[in-house]
Design a protein around this nucleic acid. Structure first.
Length: 635
RNA sequence: GCCAGGAUAGCUCAGCGGCAGAGCAGCUCACUCGUAAUGAGCAGGUCGAGGGUUCGAUUCCCUCUCCUGGCUCCA
């Protein structure tokens, strides 16, 4: 699945005034569960409760956690049946399922998965209990003498610490638990093995590549089916598939992977996005810039990119005995403009935005449709201000950002505040002030947030916003980053009211992130059925028969001159086929034009929702589309 | 980059040592037709690239390119 979650730091706090949604906060959940006691049936004299009853008393997330964890153990047992020589690594529950990593003598095939599933169903049917036992680290070392990965895990445990083992049937695992009481608490019809993937031991490229089996597990077959349906829906909305079907964009391996070609339909949408973006920035106190695409090495040496970021930069071009680099970021160019004047405190704050196209070298294995590319346009902006202004500026950026997300139809937004990492530059006082202004801004906007302690960049703290799409997936989009590094490196100053030169604060911020990536998320969010203001084609005029082609074409021209993106389908297909074609392209309005309409200068709208409307005057329809587009309505 | 799986017509896919296939899309022709596919015909492929095995390779082997799923949600 296309996942957009960035590297998550350690979560130590969830906003206290908002209930923790465990689905949104898996790390928190796992932490909580880790320290919750293993499940025991309540065996008092007065009240003998079966295990299943005890399981039912837990809340749903905890039950699923145990079911998934236990299913992972059952899978490991099944894999050992198939491959007695297998070395087992780790097998945790994850969102919607579980995985287990194995070191196997050969590569797994889909056929193996079917057999492993068979074994699992057998084991589950045999009603084995999950027995917890405690032992010492040394005992455990003997127990797992032939399991090198388990030994390595044991090395990470304090010598005196108690080690817990869980056993079901023939399989014992080093495991913290908790588990269900017995395999009969698992439903043999509510799990499925989904995929095989390579995964480095401990996620480290230097370590051995293991084989990971991903599975999903639920309480009931119905839930499993719903989850599989959800996966099918995700697949149907895949922006790469819709990009082809709706003729929005393409990539070309022969012309360079990870580089996006926007087709006319995609470009229409991008134009709508950019027009909106520019208008909103100008009316929210920004000035807009255009800067070059390449710069001499001096620029990148000064900025530090060559030192810290060169892996991601395109190789230099040699011209006139100088090396020029294609830009991976816009910031140094904006600073060049800043430096063209002596800046007074009266000039600040400066809010400078640019739709700046940058190129970054991404390893070929990570490229993915529009979501991970090598060339993209950032909706970048830099704010230069005095320390006094910073709080207000941050608040303003955050407010503006939320307004933009609302306009694009995203209302479920969460903030992540990343604080100072160990290796970093800048004064403590600056960091404290910056973090405090970020926190105040989040509080002011009433956003739910988490703190990623030490998760900031070395040059400053940041707020990232994650938006939730129509399928409930989170995407990290907006980033608001302080930078204590570049002003220093470029020696930026402003003259304060006391006549002294001082260092301005600098904030980088991208709201949509990259237009390419945002486009991908937008396509999936709307499943290709864009709201009227973004739809590449807003209306198609469909004549009932060839005799009305002229009228249909006249209506189309009228719509186009009224600023509506309209086509007339004058092909020799039947009306029904034209409707079907427009429907599949997810055009919001189909306008049926026949004899009745022609006589009264009307059209009969059919919405892509399937709704049919009575004939109405063309002028009336124009007014309606304008109104719906202005309201940013879906249709 | 690494592991696994892919790459056959514009798209979705079948074929897997012996003449390269289907549906949709495209093109042509016919059809006077009211809310999700009118019919007939035509055209379309160095079977991702390069090398090898073979009488013969889209098919088997090797190399490369690209695509897809993954590569700590840490016992």
């Amino acid at each position: 699945m296309a996942s957009a979650t960035g590297s998550a730091g350690k979560v130590w706090r969830c906003s206290s005034n908002i209930a923790v949604d465990t689905q949104q906060c898996p790390t928190y959940l796992q932490r909580w569960l880790r320290y919750s006691p293993p499940l025991r049936p309540n065996k008092t004299k007065e009240h003998i409760m079966s295990h299943s009853q005890a399981l039912k008393q837990l809340d749903r997330e905890q039950r699923l956690y145990r079911i998934r964890h236990s299913t992972a153990h059952v899978m490991a047992e099944a894999v050992l049946r198939e491959f007695p020589e297998a070395k087992i690594a780790i097998g945790p529950p994850i969102d919607n399922g579980f995985y287990y990593d194995f070191d196997l003598p050969r590569s797994l095939t889909p056929e193996d998965l079917r057999r492993i599933e068979e074994h699992m169903r057998e084991i589950i049917g045999e009603d084995h209990t999950f027995e917890r036992s405690a032992t010492t680290r040394e005992r455990a070392r003997e127990r797992f003498a032939d399991q090198p990965y388990k030994l390595e895990l044991l090395d990470g445990i304090e010598p005196g610490e108690e080690v817990s083992l869980y056993t079901q049937n023939t399989f014992t695992d080093l495991c913290r638990g908790p588990h269900v009481e017995s395999t009969k608490d698992l439903n043999a019809k509510a799990f499925k093995l989904l995929s095989i993937a390579g995964a480095y031991w401990r996620g480290d490229e230097q370590q051995k590549m293991l084989q990971r089996i991903y599975g999903t597990a639920w309480e009931t077959p119905k839930e499993l089916r719903q989850h599989l349906d959800h996966l099918a829906e995700v697949e149907k909305r895949d922006h790469r598939r819709l990009g082809r079907e709706l003729d929005l964009f393409s990539t070309h391996e022969e012309a360079g992977p990870g580089l996006i070609y926007w087709h006319p339909n995609g470009a229409r949408i991008r134009l709508a996005i950019e027009d909106y973006w520019r208008a909103e920035h100008l009316s929210n106190g920004y000035e807009l810039l255009y800067t070059p695409h390449v710069g001499k090495s001096w620029l990148w040496e000064t900025s530090g990119h060559l030192e810290f970021y060169s892996e991601n930069m395109y190789s230099p071009m040699e011209l006139d005995n100088a090396e020029y680099y294609t830009k991976p970021m816009n910031c140094p160019f904006h600073i060049m403009i800043y430096q063209t004047h002596t800046r007074s405190y009266r000039d600040l704050p400066l809010r400078w935005g640019e739709l700046g196209t940058v190129y970054r070298y991404e390893r070929s294995g990570v490229l993915h449709g529009l979501l991970r590319v090598r060339g993209f346009t950032q909706d970048d902006a830099h704010i230069f201000c005095t320390p006094d202004q910073i709080e207000e500026e941050i608040r303003e950026v955050l407010r503006f950002s939320l307004q933009v997300w609302d306009d694009f139809g995203f209302t479920d937004i969460k903030a992540y505040l990343a604080t100072r990492p160990e290796k970093s530059v800048g004064d403590d006082a600056d960091w404290d002030k910056a973090i405090s202004s970020l926190t105040k801004a989040i509080d002011r906007e009433g956003l739910e947030y988490e703190v990623e302690e030490g998760g900031g960049a070395f040059y400053g703290p940041k707020i990232d916003l994650k938006i939730k799409d129509a399928l409930g997936r989170e995407w990290q989009m907006t980033t608001i980053q302080f930078d204590f590094n570049l002003p220093e490196r470029f020696g930026m100053t402003f003259v304060d009211r006391d006549g002294k030169e001082k260092r301005p604060y600098m904030v980088h911020r991208a709201l949509l992130g990259s237009l390419e990536r945002f486009f991908g998320v937008l396509i999936e969010h709307y499943g290709g059925a864009f709201p009227v203001w973004l739809a590449p084609v807003q209306a198609v005029v469909i004549p009932v028969a060839p005799a009305f082609n002229d009228y249909a074409d006249r209506v189309k021209r009228e719509l186009v001159s009224a600023g509506i993106r309209a086509n007339a389908d004058l092909s020799d297909a039947r009306m029904n086929a034209k409707i079907r074609a427009a429907q599949q392209r997810k055009v919001p309005y189909m306008l049926i034009a026949g004899e009745n309409e022609q006589e009264s200068h009307q059209v009969s709208p059919r919405l892509r929702t399937g709704e049919k409307e009575d004939a109405q005057a063309v002028a009336e329809f124009i007014g309606r589309v304008r109104q719906r587009a202005a309201a940013k309505a879906l249709i």
